[in-house]
């Protein structure tokens, strides 16, 4: 399906996309995980993750991207991200109040420091990334059905 010349853009775009899309996804995950150490965080990283899938969809056509993440999986993952963030918030009740950071803080400048912030970053990243991908998927599917 990937090498089908009828769908998607030209061969040059497809080759370059095959080389770069993994790096873009990896960069998004890096930005999400290092949100408490360097600029970035859940919002920016989530949008970069969504952009990697949008890149795949623009280069290879709709079917390749949908084979990676279908629409149902996207909406389910978005709900899971929202529930995870709420769970992190409710977890604070174990220590006494909403959104209390009760996990171990660790040493500053370590990757696994700052307790619940890294969990919140991951959940927001999943939520934003998959949600924006679902928006774009809905737009593309609409255009396809109208053409037929």
């Amino acid at each position: 399906m990937i090498d089908n010349p009828k769908t998607g853009m030209t061969l040059i775009v497809k080759t370059v996309t095959r080389l770069t899309v993994g790096l873009i996804l990896l960069f998004g995950i890096y930005i999400i995980l290092h949100g408490h150490l360097s600029p970035g965080g859940g919002f920016a990283g989530g949008v970069i993750v969504a952009l990697s899938f949008v890149h795949l969809m623009l280069a290879f056509g709709k079917d390749v991207a949908v084979a990676k993440i279908s629409r149902n999986l996207a909406t389910n993952l978005e709900s899971i991200g929202a529930m995870m963030f709420l769970l992190v918030a409710v977890m604070g009740f174990l220590g006494g109040s909403f959104f209390l950071n009760i996990l171990a803080k660790g040493k500053p400048f370590d990757l696994f420091s700052s307790g619940a912030i890294i969990l919140s970053n991951i959940s927001i990243g999943i939520k934003v990334g998959v949600g924006l991908f679902a928006i774009f998927l809905a737009l593309v599917i609409l255009e396809k059905t109208k053409k037929e």
Partner: peptide, 12 residues
């Protein structure tokens, strides 16, 4: 930072 992402949602 929150306002920018909300703006994207509104635009879409």
């Amino acid at each position: 930072l929150t306002s920018i992402v909300i703006g994207l949602g509104i635009t879409a």
